[in-house]
Simulated assay, not measured.
Amino acid sequence: MKKQRRKHTAAFKARVALEAIKGLKTMSEIAAEFEIHPVMVSNWKKEMLEHLPELFESKNTRKEKDTEKDKEQLHSKVGQLTMEVDFLEKKCRQLGIPVKGRNS
């Protein structure tokens, strides 16, 4: 019978990575304490160190990125809706249905 894989929460990974960053214990000691493989400890430590600068990134920079993303989504939606309106107006003209609200 296979042993089921353990799934670790983000909080658990952060706690282990923080212990590793502190450097008070060796990777093997930390791994034994938390009952995980030493490679996982070093991987989580490396991942945490890579993502720490993002934590201190200014809020304005994050907002600007979000705003740009929202703008792109809105522009694509406007384009899609414009094409749909043009298509429907064309079909209305072909069928002889009067179109209200836009001058064409």
Rank of each mutant, 00 (worst) to 15 (best):
L55W: 06
A14H: 00
V39C: 10
E84P: 01
M1P: 04
K22T: 06
N43T: 09
K25D: 08
K71M: 15
L74K: 15
I30C: 05
H37R: 08
E72N: 13
M83G: 07
K25T: 04
M40K: 11
E72H: 12
T82S: 10
D86S: 10
G101C: 09
V99T: 07
M27A: 06
T82V: 01
R5K: 09
V41T: 03
S104Y: 01
C92V: 00
R93A: 11
N43L: 13
A17C: 00
R93P: 01
K90R: 08
G79L: 02
D66F: 01
K65F: 03
L74M: 15
T9V: 04
M40L: 13
H37L: 04
K59P: 05
M83W: 00
D86C: 07
H75P: 02
K100E: 11
P98D: 14
K59D: 13
G96L: 03
Q4E: 14
V85L: 11
N43K: 15
D70Q: 15
S58P: 01
P53N: 05
R15L: 10
D86R: 06
H51G: 11
M40E: 04
A10I: 07
E50T: 04
E19P: 01
A11M: 10
K59R: 08
S104L: 14
T61A: 13
R6C: 09
E89G: 05
K91P: 02
I36A: 07
S104C: 02
G96S: 03
L55Q: 13
K25W: 07
E54H: 01
L49G: 12
H37F: 02
E50Q: 06
V85K: 12
D86N: 10
L18V: 02
H51T: 11
E54K: 05
E84W: 03
A14S: 01
K77F: 14
S58V: 04
V16L: 05
I36M: 10
T9Q: 12
E89P: 02
M1L: 08
K13N: 07
K7W: 10
K2F: 11
L74R: 15
E47R: 13
A11S: 12
L52M: 09
K13I: 02
I21D: 05
L18C: 05
P53D: 10
N43Y: 14
C92A: 01
Q80H: 06
V41R: 04
Q73W: 15
G96C: 05
A17V: 02
L49M: 14
